[in-house]
Amino acid sequence: MSNTVHDMGGMHGFGPVEPEANEPPFHAEWEGRVLAMQRAMGAAGLWTIDGGRASLEMLPPVEYLRSSYYRRWFLGLERRLLAHGLVAEDELAAGRSLRPGRALNRRLTLADVAKPPTRGNFARPAAAPARFKPGDTVRTRNINPPTHTRLPRYARSKTGTVEAVRGCHVFPDTAAIDAGENPQWLYTVVFAATELWGEAAEPGLTVSIEAFEPYLEPA
């Protein structure tokens, strides 16, 4: 879902940022287990990284806001495991497996994780030349899809400047809903804060987003 509480840019009322001195990697043992299970089940290839993000955005807004990061991850993972039939509700209630597992395409082994992971490459061959080039003035579209998008609300219907072309990448809006990678050109588009927030914005402040070509039109 696109227009829900995960899209926080520009919201008020969340209070001060509270850095923690000497913060540990995990604040409880279960947080690390969630991270590891997320990575292990992700390796099975049943969902995309965008589908994973979308599953967090579909949490009820109150649940999303009151949950810590790893609790959100856990709730999203549970949802995906249930949706793909990998576990069943009665098993979650019982706390144990009640029937044999499905065959997975890939099961992460100790050998697979001996070294730190390297992120995937999201660049793909382009079907057409890039429509925009650095220096072009563009306007973001006013889109409000009920499904996943990476165009934040604060940057819709805004005029900005293309600063860089980042290559042609997997398009999250379709990858999240199993509608294919549908590769699209990706741009860094920079906006004056006054365009985003009005005349009272800090002079000289600029904000950029990474914008896929379908989010943009010439201005």
């Binding site: 980042r166 990448h169 600029t206 990474e210």
Partner: peptide
Amino acid sequence: IRVWDSTAET
């Protein structure tokens, strides 16, 4: 100040 919103895989 320039803020970079990480809205893609960059």
